[in-house]
Design a protein around this nucleic acid. Structure first.
Length: 425
RNA sequence: GGAGGGGUGGCCGAGUGGUUGAAGGCGCACGCUUGGAAAGCGUGUUUACAGCAAUGUGACGAGGGUUCGAAUCCCUCUCCCUCCUCCA
């Protein structure tokens, strides 16, 4: 959520910047509603001041046993006027809030201009494509041959987009998750949390999934008003909602494994093969609660952690600085990490590392006290990492001519020392 | 699911219709005291909105109602605790 005071001071800037991010919200209307609301507040505050004073006098009169009837009658009328104005203010405020909740964040100055994915800027590339002398097969075929994925049974149980990992595939998936978590907690100082997978409406609004993106989420029965999390970002960022964090404790670094659930409405038929786009997948998420003056440094550090994972896996990847038009709703800046999948002949997004500055913090009321003043903290997060496309990249890069799959070295301790998965197993 | 109890400031805790934004305590900050510290003493210490400011208004889990006036009375919801029931 943007600061209404800033919008009020510089409406043109916000109109231009939010338009670049495909916002449909009319900033003019926002400014007008805000002015209306404030004008009525001033009006009603004056009436309330009058009433408070009169009430005090009435109390004194009654205590002294004197007649206060005329003042009571007069105040009854003032009370009615106050109720009327309060109602109008509430309605305007609601309308205003609804609009503001739909306005995207404003991008940082280092974010490239642009509307399309082609306008994203490649910041750097690491590694190089594998070289080999045989025709590699796609991960779906490879995985089914090796009996490590079962897409048909997943579809039977739940539908397409719900894969089953089986046997050594299940173990490999678990190895990835555990190795990710161990890096975060043992090497980089994150505290691990295991959050709820169902969250309430307030939490979904706090991180910016609601109200705008309701159709992207699985929702439970209306009576419960609970939503399946699309990412651990939601429960973990809301961990400190409504709290005031000690500035000395920042950045607070939390990480979490969770299953993630996404309806992927509107992307039917896109990347449907195998593990490329799923309704349920596994991800380890990193979340930072940062000092407002340090969040940009922290953002670079965070993307570094995600990159380190890919480097340790020996996977060729690139880092994109997303342009304004491609940036997620809540982010002020976002790096996407894309891993090279040679069989797909494509770059696959495996991580998004975002700085939301105070956008989520204002919605979720996550604050910190700086020089005696309460200020919104900055929130950041990054995938570290989402497993499915990493698994695709491993399949694409680590398969051998005989149809076996070599286990990346860092994962072998988590596989009981196993170094290769063979078709006969 | 049934019965009961409770949500007040950073924390504990008083307060059942009228200068109570809130006693008292703890904690914290600053000052005095000290060679230094502790103790002691003094002062200060919630937050949002409007305003250049003085100041005004709102907020005692949330929302609604009664009243000239609500932390205090009524209704709905929510969360926590205890007991019973049920269950991995």
């Amino acid at each position: 959520m943007l600061d209404i005071r800033l919008i009020r001071e510089n409406p043109d800037f916000f109109a231009t910047e939010t338009a670049k991010r495909n916002s449909a919200v009319d900033i003019n209307q926002v400014v007008q509603l805000d002015a209306q609301r404030r004008q009525k507040v001033v009006e009603v505050d004056a009436l309330k001041a009058q009433r408070n004073e009169a009430s005090k006098k009435i109390g004194q009169l009654k205590k002294a046993g004197e007649d206060a009837e005329s003042a009571v009658l007069e105040m009854r009328q003032v009370g009615e006027k106050i109720a009327e104005l309060d109602g109008e203010i509430r309605q305007i405020a609601q309308e205003l809030e609804e609009l503001i909740l739909h306005i995207p964040n404003v991008a940082h100055e280092s974010v490239p201009e642009g509307q399309n994915p082609e306008d994203n800027v490649v910041e750097r590339t690491w590694g190089a494509p594998v070289e080999r002398d045989f025709e590699a097969i796609d991960h779906k075929t490879l995985g089914e041959n090796l009996n490590i994925f079962d897409f048909e049974r997943g579809a039977k149980i739940s539908g397409s987009g719900f894969p089953v990992y089986r046997g050594l595939g299940a173990r490999l998936e678990r190895a990835l998750i555990q190795w990710f978590l161990d890096c975060h907690t043992q090497k980089w100082g994150f505290e691990e949390v295991i959050p709820p997978y169902l969250v309430n409406r307030k939490s979904m609004t706090g991180t910016g999934q609601l109200p705008k993106f309701a159709e992207d989420m699985y929702a439970c029965d209306k009576d419960d008003d609970l939503f399946l999390i699309p990412t651990a970002e939601v429960p973990v960022t809301n961990f400190f909602a409504d709290e005031i964090l000690d500035a000395k404790s920042l950045p607070q670094k939390l990480c979490a494994y969770s299953a993630c659930f996404r309806r992927e409405a509107g992307s039917y038929g896109k990347d449907t093969r195998g593990l490329l786009r799923l309704h349920q997948f596994n991800k380890v998420e990193m979340v930072y609660f940062s000092h407002p003056e340090k969040s940009w440094e922290d953002h670079e550090e965070l993307v570094g952690f995600a990159e380190q994972l890919l480097q340790d896996l020996g996977l060729h990847y690139r880092v994109l600085n997303l342009c304004k038009g491609d940036l997620g709703f809540s982010a002020a800046k976002c790096y996407d990490l894309e891993v090279w999948a040679p069989v797909e002949n494509n770059w696959l997004e495996v991580s998004s590392v975002s700085n939301f500055v105070d956008f989520q913090a204002r919605r979720a009321r996550i604050r910190t006290r700086i020089d005696g003043k309460n200020t919104f903290a900055h929130t950041l997060n990054g995938s570290g990492l989402a497993t499915p496309r990493v698994m695709v990249a491993i399949c694409d890069n680590y398969q051998q001519a005989d149809g076996s799959l070599v286990i990346p070295e860092v994962l072998r301790p988590y596989m009981g020392g196993l170094d290769v998965i063979r078709p006969d197993k």
